[in-house]
Amino acid sequence: MNTKLFVSVVLVLAVIAFYLLPKTRLGKALRMNEKLFYAINITGIACGAAGLALSLIMGERIMTGHYFELILLPAVIIYLYSAVVMKARGNQSAFDEKQGLDMTRAAALSLPFSIAGMFLLYALYRESVFEGLVWFPVYLFLTLTVYSAAVLVYFRRC
């Protein structure tokens, strides 16, 4: 099956689910708990690390073959699930206050990492180590890995 078509269909279904699920009984039954919080971030680390490794091994093939969308898919689905839970809960936050703080701190840590990563990529392109579109999956998966790992470290560090 065409990967582009497959990912497009999944994304369309995901958007529909995001708007329709919270209005159903199932939507009200969805819950965010500590295990799911771990699952979100472990999935982020797994997808990010796998994507980063394959981007470095396969180079531009990961983009032209649309493999990066497939690698990213589990993370997208689990993030979408959490978005559905948040939408279903309305004003009531799906995360507790420390989880919120941990995510904020992880985002603040990811920013300098992603800037440093971009400078490194720029240098690698200038030295012709990389070429083509490989910067995109490398940057994307690096940021995802750092962010997810940082959230877990902050959350566990208590």
Binding site: K98, L101, R157
Partner: peptide, 14 residues
């Protein structure tokens, strides 16, 4: 809240 939050408060880390 989560158990981690209670642990962090008890340890004065949050």
């Amino acid at each position: 809240v989560t158990r981690q939050t209670i642990i962090s408060i008890e340890k004065n880390r949050y």
